[in-house]
Design a protein around this nucleic acid. Structure first.
Lengths: 151, 151
DNA sequence: ATAATGTTTCCCATCATGGGAAGGTCAAGG
DNA sequence: CCTTGACCTTCCCATGATGGGAAACATTAT
């Protein structure tokens, strides 16, 4: 089966299939006499596995771990569960950071008239926090270091 | 004021200050006779503005817009508010996507014994969705195209 | 004078993904 | 048999925000 068919069957773009192969996530595909990559149903199955894990927010590196677990028939289900739950925590943390940003912005926007006058507490707060018109009881949650959250 | 001082005063790394200058987000800094960048308190003020907007999850490109709004004394506060609220929606969408991934994973993990036996519904579901031991009432929310959500 | 610290520019790496070029292959239809 | 079009190959480049590090120069402190 050519890469295009495997791509459509798995939902992984041809580009990404080649990338996964190049980075060692999946083994090198077989080749036809003329050099085309040749995929089996089993390969497609694995690609779909990768695809779904990506949809669940796992990094390619993590998926490498998941594939190893998948193929290791002797691993304990606890190993998989631990990995899943650790990832859940990371996802929830990132979601919460985004929510906090959204709340902070909503809070600012609540105090902005949103009319055609120029006075805007949102901008004022960005320019000089704590000196503007916005009452804020919320505290800043540790985004202060040079290393900052990826939005 | 040298770049290091401006960096510590604004919370923006020297690297990023140069990057913001190179990409045109902030104007080119003045230079001393020997070629060192030279910053004023006003420059630091602007850098802090950028820093806080980044903390609120705005992209550098969006911050360009915010800076223009900041410096335009005639703009309507509605313009700022609209931008803020649009961004809030994007943030909330991303947060929700992460939450959905987390829920899906939790759902799988709930059905995994997490002991030393190898049977694991999490892996099984990744390998062959809908054919495993997991009852799922949840539906898939349109992450099916080749273009996928950034985790 | 020398050592230490700061700054400059330049190149490279990240992570997952896509775009596009230049060239080879294959199948269908003339 | 030959053309056409769809497909495949590899290679390079770009994204966005950030950091690492080298080589060279400047400033400051000992």
């Amino acid at each position: 089966m050519n890469i295009g068919i495997a791509s459509r069957a798995s939902g992984v773009s041809s580009k990404m299939i080649r990338y996964y192969e190049a980075t060692g996530l999946i083994p090198k595909a077989g080749r036809t006499g003329s050099g085309y990559r040749d995929y089996t149903d089993k390969d497609v199955h694995k690609l779909r596995f990768v695809r779904r894990a990506r949809d669940l927010g796992f990094s390619v590196e993590q998926i490498g771990g998941l594939l190893r677990l998948w193929e290791d028939r002797t691993r304990a289900s606890a190993d998989v569960k631990r990995m899943a739950l650790t990832h859940v925590e990371v996802l929830r943390e990132r979601a919460q950071q985004l929510e906090e940003m959204a709340s902070a912005l909503i809070h600012l926007a609540d105090h902005c008239a949103g009319d055609d006058r120029p006075d805007c507490p949102i901008i004022e707060e960005l320019a000089a926090p704590g000196r503007g018109h916005v009452h804020h009881n919320h505290h800043h949650h540790g985004l202060d270091g040079p290393k900052r959250a990826r939005s």
